[in-house]
Simulated scan of single mutants.
Amino acid sequence: MPLGGDWVQGTALTANGISRTPDGRALLMVNQAVGGGSLMRVDPRTGVARRVDVGGTPLPNADGLLLLGRLLHVVQNRLNTIAVLKLNESGTGGRVIARITDPDFKVPTTAAVWRDRIYLPNARFDVAQPTPDTTYDVVAVDRVGR
């Protein structure tokens, strides 16, 4: 589906992460070419994208998106961080309420939830030449803002 509206196609990786809005009426994606990483609300019928007002907070290196209720967890891979945003019901606005980091993060790329924990695989993009001895693992962190 071609994306339009506020969408800007960059010369490198532009879109990353996808989730639904809290009300289930649209999709959320991060556009790396707009404002250093901007959350976008996309109409799934038309492809029209509108920038979500998150108070001017950029979301660089955004990768996986995990929506839990109205809390959107944005995995920022090379920053080894999860930005936690509280969204309004329609997903047109929100604000960062927390940032989750862990010393065991080694470029996490996506997230899944089970009970009170969020699980993130380490992609190990920090290793220039992986070998058979390069370790890969999953890190579990506590959920916040419930």
Rank of each mutant, 00 (worst) to 15 (best):
V54I: 15
L72T: 10
F105V: 01
R20A: 14
D23K: 07
D133F: 11
P58W: 12
N122G: 09
R70G: 08
G47D: 06
V48S: 06
P103W: 05
G36T: 07
S38W: 08
N77I: 07
P132W: 05
R25K: 15
I82N: 01
M1G: 11
S90C: 05
G17L: 09
L87H: 03
T110N: 15
Q76R: 15
V144Y: 03
V96A: 15
V96P: 01
R99V: 06
L79I: 02
Y136G: 06
K106W: 02
V74P: 06
N122T: 09
N88F: 01
T46V: 02
T110P: 05
V107N: 14
R25H: 13
D137G: 13
A12P: 00
A128N: 12
D43E: 08
T46D: 02
I118W: 06
R41Q: 13
L120W: 02
A26Q: 00
V52Q: 11
D133P: 00
S38C: 06
L120T: 05
L66M: 12
S19A: 15
T101R: 15
T101S: 10
K86V: 05
L79M: 08
P130R: 03
A128K: 12
K86P: 00
R70I: 10
Y119G: 08
A111I: 02
A62D: 04
D104Y: 00
P2D: 03
D43W: 00
I18R: 00
G55Y: 05
M29V: 15
D23N: 15
R45A: 15
G69F: 04
R41L: 08
R115K: 15
V42S: 04
V139P: 05
Q129S: 14
V30H: 00
V84D: 02
T46N: 00
I18S: 07
T131K: 08
P44W: 08
D133K: 13
